[in-house]
């Protein structure tokens, strides 16, 4: 039970689920699958199918737009409680970046098909996700305006 609670809290802190109620996150937490990744590995490559999203339990993941695997220039480095690969869950397009494991990491993966099934059964889940995405969009707009 405490494992489930930890997952719910982790999901609640992940930006994409921050506006989803803990009650609805219960069902999401049940669908998460643990994945262990080790330094130097890649979680996914550019143009891979976007079949799942990830939430980082611990460790560090670097996101790179480089198509050349030799070049590791990260546009962003993500740590615990952050998520990646979530945009592909909704737009059905292939991965637009490569995710490198910078430190041994524990990831929680959520399959696209499972999330979609959940959304059909728990429509308010999608409202929370849309709320979170909308907040991020507003923040991005403000940052753009400031710059």
């Amino acid at each position: 039970m405490s494992d489930l609670f930890e997952r719910i809290l982790l999901l609640k802190q992940a930006p994409i689920f921050s506006k989803v109620s803990t009650e609805d996150l219960r069902v999401v937490a049940h669908e998460l699958e643990e994945e262990a990744c080790f330094i130097g590995e890649r979680v996914f490559d550019i143009n891979d199918p976007s079949d799942r999203m990830y939430i980082i339990e611990y460790g560090k993941i670097g996101i790179s737009l480089e198509t050349n695997p030799g070049k590791k220039e990260f546009i962003v480095e993500l740590g615990a409680k952050e998520c990646f690969g979530e945009m592909g869950m909704f737009d059905d397009k292939p991965r637009s970046a490569t995710a490198y494991v910078m430190e041994d990491s524990g990831l929680l993966a959520l399959e696209k098909s499972k999330l979609r099934a959940l959304i059909i059964n728990y429509p308010e889940l999608s409202l929370g996700i849309m709320g979170s995405i909308s907040s991020r969009l507003r923040d991005a707009n403000l940052r753009l305006k400031k710059n």
Binding site: F5, L9, S21, T22
Partner: peptide, 15 residues
């Protein structure tokens, strides 16, 4: 000892 459950209870009460 149940710090996680307490944190979750806090989050639920906030909701």
């Amino acid at each position: 000892t149940s710090q996680t459950a307490m944190q979750l209870l806090q989050a639920i009460l906030k909701e």
